[in-house]
Amino acid sequence: MVLTWGIPSESPIRRLLDELDVLEQPYVAVSQRHFAETDLNLTIDAVGNLGGTLTYQGQTYPLAEISGVYLRLVDDEVLPEFQRLPVDDPLRMHTRRLIQHLSVWSEWAGCRLVNSMPAMASNNSKPYQAQFIQQHGFLTPDTLITNNPDRVMDFCERHHNRVIYKSISGVRSIVQAWNPRTDAEKLALIRHCPVQFQEQVDGFDVRVHVIGELVLATRITAQATDYRYALHQTGESATLAPYELEADVAASCVSLSKALGLNFSGIDLRISPTGEVYCFEVNPCPAYTYYESYTSQPIAAWLAEYLSGHDNYYRRVWNV
């Protein structure tokens, strides 16, 4: 049985459930909004094997029957049902305990897990993640993080002002191109909070979804600095199409994802005009339906096969 936990109406969960239906695989889809009707009771035996039960909307499921878990959690604080609770309502404590138990069980029970909560934290720091990226054979753009405006000016000069800046942390930010005329005036502000600058890399974008040992790549064509905001930045939407990765690049994507502890990831590559492969970021909780909707690539289907341990997944891995 596969367990999903999040908001089932969100498209990544909805698409996964659709594909589990196609495979006729059993699942339980826990909605975070129904925290009052959800409980997890955990047990351990003498050697530390985890067991227990999940109770959801009046039904009880032995945790031993769950072999795959897909987590797409939102912050409890944004749930309307949670917001309405008085600050001292015991349900608040119950909800916190529920997520903590979910984290402990999913981390250590040994299920196929998409994805481990601590592993999902790796993109809380882009330069930290970049160091893993480098170790797996990808190039990363020349990067400077500093609170010294003079160093930024030198960096921009060295890169002929072809520089972008973006957040260091996992805070979602729109990548901005450096404008020497208007941005130089604002540089003094970085004294108060260091900022990340990167050389601009030419080429086309490829989003790689890694599912266990498998990869599906999508080529994105856009004129924008950040293709996610192409329409806003350039007035033209990005175009997406399936893309065939070189075998060694695909293997590097799988090993990078594994090194970060991710069984499912969205890796952002840029292939330069000379064929060099840069990697910008690994998304640990990819909103894959955006890519699927443009290309009809079977991301949800392969994810469903992976999580349910379906024979099809292993056939694809072994190419039989």
Binding site: N124, S125, Y128, A130, I145, H192
Partner: peptide, 12 residues
């Protein structure tokens, strides 16, 4: 935001 940025910097 600043808190997240600074902690991300020192982690790396």
């Amino acid at each position: 935001y600043v808190s997240q940025e600074i902690n991300a910097l020192y982690l790396s």
